[in-house]
C-alpha cells in the first residue's frame, strides 16, 4: 500500500504488523518511521506491541510430561515391533 504524506496515528496502528514483518515498501517504511520519531503516542504504541510480542514469546517453557513421554515410547515400541 502507499502511505500518504500525512499518515495519521489511526492509520499507523494498522500498519504496525506490516512494519514489524518488514513488508512495507521502502518509501512507506520511511514515512512510518518519520511519524514514529515525531509522535510519542505512536512510539509508545509500537513499543507496547514489541513488548507484547516478546512476552508472548516467553510462553513456551512448557515441556513434555513424564506420562506423555512414557506413552509415546510405548507407541514407538509398538510401531517398531509391528
Amino acid at each position: 500500500m502507499l502511505i500518504s504524506e500525512d499518515l495519521t496515528c489511526q492509520e499507523l496502528v494498522e500498519l504496525v504488523t506490516e512494519y514489524l514483518e518488514g513488508t512495507l515498501r521502502p518509501k512507506d517504511r520511511d514515512r512510518f518511521e518519520q511519524h514514529v520519531v515525531l509522535c510519542d503516542g505512536c512510539a509508545y504504541y509500537l513499543d507496547q506491541m514489541r513488548t507484547m510480542i516478546a512476552l508472548t514469546d516467553s510462553l513456551t517453557e512448557e515441556s513434555i510430561t513424564p506420562e506423555a513421554r512414557e506413552s509415546l515410547l510405548h507407541v514407538f515400541r509398538e510401531w517398531k515391533g509391528g
Partner: peptide, 12 residues
C-alpha cells in the same frame, strides 16, 4: 483528526 486523543501508556 486521526491522531491520539491521549497517548497509550508507556510500558517501559
Amino acid at each position: 483528526a486521526g491522531h491520539w486523543k491521549s497517548y497509550p501508556e508507556r510500558w517501559d
